[in-house]
Design a protein around this nucleic acid. Sequence first.
DNA 1: CTAAAACCTGACGCTGACGTCAGAGGCAAG
DNA 2: CTTGCCTCTGACGTCAGCGTCAGGTTTTAG
Lengths: 125, 125
Amino acid sequence: MTVTEAATERLIRIGEVARGAGVSVRAVRYYEQQGLLVAERSPSGQRLYRQDAIARIRFFQQMYAAGLTSRRITELLPCWDSGHTDAEQRAMLRAERDRIQAKVDELQAALNRLDEVIAITDTHP
Amino acid sequence: MTVTEAATERLIRIGEVARGAGVSVRAVRYYEQQGLLVAERSPSGQRLYRQDAIARIRFFQQMYAAGLTSRRITELLPCWDSGHTDAEQRAMLRAERDRIQAKVDELQAALNRLDEVIAITDTHP
DNA sequence: CTAAAACCTGACGCTGACGTCAGAGGCAAG
DNA sequence: CTTGCCTCTGACGTCAGCGTCAGGTTTTAG
């Protein structure tokens, strides 16, 4: 890909982004409002996104699913975009990691209790 | 333990239950309101609980942590209390189990992405 | 007996990631 | 041209598990 091609990369509108990422149009606007996603604007004011916006939104969804807030994600986005962190960010990364790991353990425990009941009630129809 | 002792089991008030289970008094009242927890009443109207109420609440917390709603828990409580289930309950048990398992997988994926960044940024201080 | 601590019943508030509705403009096709 | 779909900006609604405040009764400690 040449520099010229990169400069003329095809931009897509919000509907295509939303469908591509499997979220609602409302959600995409919300991400922008939270400072997660920046969009260019067409002369008439419509949002225009680059292709990688879809991957970014998928990443947001993954972090949301892991229990991170929009605020936390904005604070940690530079770690992904620049590959560099300061001490505060490293502390946040560790804290989130530990919280998620604890959550996994909780879920596993709950899973075991459900499986016990399933096993018992399946043998006693 | 004799039958007479069982009949005169020491009942505890809501504050002791809450402290024992590590939740707020408000939370315990909420569980009753949702139909999760029944309490006797003293002549003056105060709630009186048996000791096992604490274990029940710990169980509720575990299910909440696993993403079950109060409604779902009430629907599945008979499975624990009676050890018996009908077809609908078995379907719910399986659905919840699968949902939790999927959630675990999501969290593991997020965990891996965080660990990648932690590993990279720790080697690039 | 009295003061503090604990309990009661409403009932409104909070949080976060959106859903949803209103009213208005933009854009390719027939 | 106009039909129909897409997009825009507010702004209020939702849900669930409580937090919190108000105003009053009850139990306990000294």
